[in-house]
Amino acid sequence: MNEYIPQADKEFILKELKRYETPISALIPSLFCIQKRHGWVPAEAVKELSLLSDLPESRINEVLNFYTMFNKKPVGQLHVQVCCNVSCAMNGGRELAKHICETYKVGFEQVSPCGTVTVSPVECLGACDKAPMMQVGQAYYEDLTNESALEVLEKLAFEKAKVSAHV
């Protein structure tokens, strides 16, 4: 039954729901929990969350669509967010984002054919002194060049592959 929200996540969400006065307050942690599990927030998970939290699906979708940090589409194993705001753009952030796309033969916000990478151009991530920079998952990679960025991604992809091979 709970295909998209497994038992562990369900327990977390129920705990969050109890923490706040209204269920709508627990939405953001719940949605992040789902995103952590799947990499994005599938519509089916929203339906399950709606049953769990007794909130209408449309209310959940309003919150989900308001924030850009929730992925509404599937992303690759590495979600590469390249800063394209002023400082990074002046130091080649936009070109860097394009270069990664070209290397992995993928457009913005798409999953690369190999399934590893999704590149998103984003606004300022607050590391202007180390421009250009990118965020992969939760980690920041700063002072990048086209080459060093690709190196980082290759390394991360290799690690991911190693982990999944172990599993």
Binding site: A43, V46, P56, E57, S58, R59, I60, N61, E62, N65, F66
Partner: peptide
């Protein structure tokens, strides 16, 4: 029945139903 909502934000906001 809560079908309708306002999705997205800023000047991209639009009303719609879930899915």
């Amino acid at each position: 029945t809560n079908e309708l909502g306002i999705f997205n934000r800023g000047d991209h906001s639009e009303i719609g139903t879930f899915e």
